[in-house]
Every structure is written in C-alpha cells, then in structure tokens.
Nucleic acid binder design. Sequence first.
DNA 1: GCTATTTGACCACT
DNA 2: AGTGGTCAAATAGC
Length: 361
Amino acid sequence: MDETISLILHGCRLAKDLELNLANLANQPEILSNSCEQIIRAFIDARERLNVHQQDATSYPRYMGQQLQQQQNIDPSVQEWLRTSCTSAMETLFHQTQDLMAERSGLGLIESKVGGGIQMGSGGLVIELGSRSDVQAMEASDSGRGSSSSSQRPRRRKDDAEKQTVRVPAQQFGNTEIPPEDGFTWRKYGQKEILGSRFPRAYYRCTHQKLYHCPAKKQVQRLDDDPYTFEVAYRGGHTCHMSATAPSVPPPAPEITQEMAQTMTAQPQPSATTSLARWLEFSLGSGGSAGGSSSSGSMAAGSSGGAGPSTVSRYGKEADYPVTDMADAMFNSGSSSTNSMEFIFPSILEEKWDPPSDKKN
DNA sequence: GCTATTTGACCACT
DNA sequence: AGTGGTCAAATAGC
C-alpha cells in the first residue's frame, strides 16, 4: 500500500511541477504533453493498485473489474516506467510528506478519490444495463409511478420506458464540464438540483422530438464521488431518422494509449477496430472529415459561456458540424490531443451522419 | 427571427 | 410536504 501512496504522491508532485512551470512551458506543447502523460500514468497505476487492494478485500463492482482488466492488459509499459523511474526519490518524498499529508487529511482524500474510479486518461466507458444497484440512485425518483392523469397540460410520466445507465468519463483537461458525446443531438430542457448530490442533474431530450416525435431522453449527472465521471441515463429509444445509424447507447470506448494510437494509425485495421482507427486518425490530426452527430448539451454552458474558449458552441452550428466543433474544443483546450480525445466516443465516427434537415421548423 | 439554454414554476408522485 | 421531472417564459448568440 505504501507503494501505491508513493505513486499518488509522485503524480501530485509531477502535477505541482507542471503547474509551477506552466508559464514557461506555454509554448512547448511537446513538453507539456509529456508531462501530462507522466502524470496520467502515475495516477492510472496508482488506481490500478488500489483496485487490486479493493478487489482483495471486498467483492468488486463489475465495471471496476472490467476497467482493471483492461488496464492490466495494456499497461506493462507503465509498470516498467514505474519500476525504473519511481524509486528511492519517491520513497524519500513519500516519507517527507507523509506526516504533513496525514495531518491535513489530504492523504485520505486523494486515496478515496483515486480508488473511486477517477478516469485519468483511461477513456473507459462503463455501460450498466438493468443492474439493480447500478440504477438505484436514479431510479429512486421514478419507481412505482404510474401513468399520468389527464389534465389540461399533460406532463411527463408514463416513463416506464426502460432506463439504461452508462458511466462515461469527463475530460480531464480543458473544459471538464462538456458532457459526454454519444452520437445523438440533444436539447437540454431542464436542470435540477438533486437531493444528496453535489452536482445538478441535466435533462435532455432528442432534438428531433417534435419533428419525428422521438421520445428519447437522457439525464446527465456527475457522480458525487467522482466528478470526472458522468452518469448518463437513457430513456426511450430514438425514432427519429438518426436512429437508423446511431446507437441509443454508445458502445464501450476502447482503452487507448499513445502506443496504441501510433500502432493503429500505422497499420491496416481489422474491422473491429475501424471505429477506433478512424477516431485516432482524426484525433491525431490526419483525419477530421469523419461523420457523426453531436450532443448539443453543455452541462454548465450557461450565460457565462461555459468554461471559456474550449466550450462547444451551444447554438445551431454544433449540430451541423459536431465533430469539428468538438475537435476545436479539445485542441483549444491546450491539452495533448491524443490524451484529450480519449474522452470522446469513437463510436460517433463509425456512423454515417445525415445532415439534419429539420433545423428550420 | 430562429434556435438553444436557463431557470422558476408547475405537476405527478410518494 | 418533499422530491424529481417537465414546462415555458425569459434570455442570449447567431
């Protein structure tokens, strides 16, 4: 366990160093990228070790087990890097800071946060369908409600439609408040503070609801214990024209590393990874014309303009040229494109995108 | 003017 | 009464 703490501290240290040198490195994206990569790897490995600890101690949630499995498959280089780079210096650092950290309770905070599934660069997506515990929190408000009574203003209910909950990582850099991309266009129609939750829940309906009577809706909420993860609940299938090509629930995003990115863009791709390959091509700058549609939502993209220049435009255009806009958002965020783009669903690039014909109505 | 977002209010339900 | 889901007027960017 001490080794794990050392890893976390090392990651913190790297982040601190990066922060201190940020002004000097502003014009050196390569160095910045490498620094980010090192920080990410440190935390990924720390999380992995924490996962092992947890798995040993208790029955482990299914999705975390999957993540662990994925990471174990792809991260030998990280382990090697840790073996070679994080040695006595880290131990020294650990011992020097241990007392201070414990005194400030910072240690516990960091540990619980990482253990809670922080998505440092993993790009992992967790789909949880129909699992009792998975949906429990969000189901609480819906369970047992029957059809609505007829009134002059018919409101909601009849929401017995099956709910599918997925967890998707938020961006780690730039604007972390951009909600997950899932290949459909959504219109936000409400936001609500939820009791016991630190973050509000945003309500979206399909952009084409009126034209196609599309009943699809989704709720987006950040997890209390992991603000870097969105929990997205989908309800009602798409009946609009988009549904012919886009999935109502995005498939799991493959685990991606820089090594994989280089490998996959350099070699012919098997069909199963076509989506990923195209997405990588795009994210590495050689693509960019691949199709897809966009989520129009931006959780906190309010009158303040969201989180600055990296925010995807809220209006019109983003539905027309979604991938470009999202790419702009990512590239403008000042982060490594490869790392940042891990948090966008590659699935959207796999789909044929039909230009919306119902923008004027 | 059009369209999307915000947000207070309303409604269904427990 | 409390809570979550939805509506719709106000607002804002294009």
